Amino acid sequence: MQGVVKVNSALNMRSGPGSNYGVIGTLRNNDKVEIIKEVDGAYEIRFNGKVGYASKSYITIVN
């Protein structure tokens, strides 16, 4: 499943599905991501070869 990031500035990509996990990357508006699955209000995603988590509130599914 594919998604597009929709933010005003940037969205943190984290090592786990919550803000208490470390930041492993930054997503920008209109970045395209692969959605692997939904976990606790976040999506597990793949972006630029990395797998991490981002809030589903800022990712629009575009299948």
Results as ranks from 00 to 15, higher is better:
Met1Phe: 11
Met1Arg: 12
Met1Asp: 05
Met1His: 10
Met1Thr: 11
Met1Asn: 07
Met1Lys: 11
Met1Ile: 13
Met1Pro: 06
Met1Ser: 09
Gln2Trp: 15
Gln2Cys: 15
Gln2His: 12
Gln2Lys: 11
Gln2Asp: 07
Gly3Pro: 01
Gly3Phe: 03
Val4His: 05
Val4Tyr: 08
Val4Phe: 07
Val4Trp: 06
Val4Met: 08
Val4Gln: 07
Val5Gly: 04
Val5Asp: 01
Val5Glu: 01
Val5His: 01
Val5Ser: 01
Lys6Trp: 05
Lys6Phe: 07
Lys6Gln: 10
Lys6Leu: 08
Lys6Tyr: 08
Lys6Met: 09
Val7Asn: 07
Val7Ala: 12
Val7Thr: 15
Val7Arg: 05
Val7Ser: 13
Val7Lys: 09
Asn8His: 13
Asn8Gln: 13
Asn8Pro: 11
Ser9Asp: 13
Ser9Gly: 15
Ser9Arg: 13
Ser9Val: 13
Ser9Asn: 12
Ser9His: 14
Ala10Trp: 15
Ala10Arg: 13
Ala10Pro: 13
Ala10Glu: 14
Ala10Ser: 13
Leu11Trp: 01
Leu11Gly: 05
Leu11His: 05
Leu11Asn: 02
Leu11Tyr: 05
Asn12Val: 15
Asn12Gln: 14
Asn12Phe: 15
Asn12Cys: 15
Asn12Leu: 15
Asn12Tyr: 15
Met13Asp: 03
Met13Thr: 02
Arg14Cys: 14
Arg14Val: 11
Arg14Pro: 03
Ser15Lys: 08
Ser15Asn: 09
Ser15Met: 06
Ser15Val: 08
Gly16Ser: 08
Gly16Gln: 05
Gly16Phe: 03
Pro17Cys: 08
Pro17Asp: 04
Pro17Tyr: 05
Pro17Ser: 04
Pro17Trp: 07
Pro17Asn: 06
Pro17Leu: 08
Gly18Glu: 06
Gly18Phe: 04
Gly18Ile: 02
Gly18Ser: 11
Ser19Leu: 13
Ser19Glu: 15
Ser19Ala: 13
Ser19Asp: 15
Ser19Trp: 12
Asn20Glu: 14
Asn20Cys: 14
Asn20Lys: 12
Asn20Val: 08
Asn20Arg: 11
Tyr21Asn: 08
Tyr21Ile: 03
Tyr21Gln: 07
Tyr21Phe: 12
Tyr21Arg: 05
Gly22Ile: 14
Gly22Arg: 14
Gly22Gln: 15
Gly22His: 14
Val23Leu: 05
Val23Phe: 04
Val23Thr: 08
Val23Met: 04
Val23Cys: 08
Ile24Trp: 01
Ile24Ala: 03
Ile24Met: 05
Ile24Pro: 01
Ile24His: 02
Gly25Phe: 10
Gly25Ser: 08
Thr26Val: 14
Thr26His: 09
Thr26Trp: 08
Thr26Ser: 08
Thr26Gly: 03
Thr26Glu: 08
Thr26Arg: 10
Leu27Cys: 03
Leu27Phe: 02
Leu27Met: 05
Leu27Pro: 01
Arg28Thr: 08
Arg28Gly: 07
Arg28Met: 12
Arg28Lys: 12
Asn29Phe: 08
Asn29Ala: 07
Asn29Thr: 07
Asn29Trp: 06
Asn29Cys: 10
Asn29Gly: 07
Asn30Cys: 12
Asn30Tyr: 07
Asn30Lys: 07
Asp31Trp: 04
Asp31Pro: 01
Asp31Leu: 03
Lys32Leu: 14
Lys32Asp: 04
Lys32Tyr: 12
Lys32Pro: 07
Lys32Thr: 11
Lys32Ser: 09
Val33Cys: 05
Val33Ser: 00
Val33Phe: 03
Val33Tyr: 01
Val33Ala: 01
Val33Arg: 00
Glu34Cys: 13
Glu34Trp: 14
Glu34Leu: 11
Glu34Asp: 10
Glu34Gly: 04
Ile35Ser: 00
Ile35Val: 10
Ile35Thr: 00
Ile35Gly: 00
Ile35Met: 02
Ile35Gln: 00
Ile36Tyr: 05
Ile36Trp: 04
Ile36Thr: 05
Ile36Asn: 03
Ile36Met: 09
Ile36Leu: 13
Ile36Glu: 02
Lys37Gln: 11
Lys37Trp: 05
Lys37Thr: 10
Glu38Cys: 10
Glu38Gly: 04
Glu38Trp: 04
Glu38Leu: 06
Glu38Pro: 04
Val39Pro: 01
Val39Lys: 07
Val39Cys: 10
Val39Asn: 04
Asp40Trp: 10
Asp40Glu: 12
Asp40Thr: 07
Asp40His: 10
Gly41Asp: 12
Gly41Cys: 10
Gly41His: 09
Gly41Asn: 11
Gly41Phe: 08
Ala42Ile: 09
Ala42Asp: 15
Tyr43Gln: 00
Tyr43Gly: 00
Tyr43Lys: 00
Glu44Leu: 13
Glu44Ile: 10
Glu44Ala: 08
Glu44Met: 15
Glu44Trp: 08
Ile45Lys: 00
Ile45Pro: 00
Ile45Gln: 00
Ile45Cys: 04
Ile45Ala: 00
Ile45Val: 09
Ile45Trp: 00
Arg46Met: 11
Arg46His: 08
Arg46Glu: 07
Arg46Ala: 08
Arg46Asn: 09
Arg46Gly: 04
Phe47Gly: 02
Phe47Asn: 03
Phe47Asp: 01
Asn48Phe: 08
Asn48Gly: 11
Asn48Met: 12
Asn48Arg: 11
Gly49Leu: 04
Gly49Phe: 04
Lys50His: 08
Lys50Cys: 09
Lys50Asn: 08
Lys50Tyr: 07
Lys50Pro: 00
Val51Pro: 03
Val51Phe: 07
Val51His: 09
Gly52Met: 02
Gly52Thr: 02
Gly52Phe: 03
Gly52Gln: 02
Tyr53Ser: 01
Tyr53Gln: 01
Tyr53Pro: 00
Tyr53Met: 02
Tyr53Thr: 01
Tyr53Glu: 01
Ala54Leu: 07
Ala54Thr: 09
Ala54Met: 04
Ala54Trp: 02
Ser55Lys: 09
Ser55Cys: 14
Ser55Leu: 11
Ser55Gln: 11
Ser55Ile: 09
Ser55His: 10
Lys56Glu: 03
Lys56Ile: 10
Lys56Gln: 07
Lys56Tyr: 03
Lys56Gly: 04
Lys56His: 04
Lys56Leu: 05
Lys56Asp: 02
Ser57Leu: 14
Ser57His: 14
Ser57Thr: 13
Ser57Asp: 14
Tyr58His: 12
Tyr58Phe: 13
Tyr58Glu: 07
Tyr58Ser: 09
Tyr58Cys: 14
Tyr58Met: 06
Tyr58Gln: 06
Ile59Lys: 00
Ile59His: 00
Thr60Ile: 15
Thr60Lys: 13
Thr60Glu: 13
Thr60Tyr: 14
Ile61Lys: 07
Ile61Gly: 03
Ile61Asp: 03
Ile61Pro: 09
Ile61Leu: 11
Ile61Gln: 05
Val62Asn: 07
Val62Arg: 05
Val62Glu: 09
Val62Gly: 06
Val62Met: 11
Val62Thr: 11
Asn63Ile: 11
Asn63Lys: 11
Asn63Asp: 12
Asn63Gln: 12
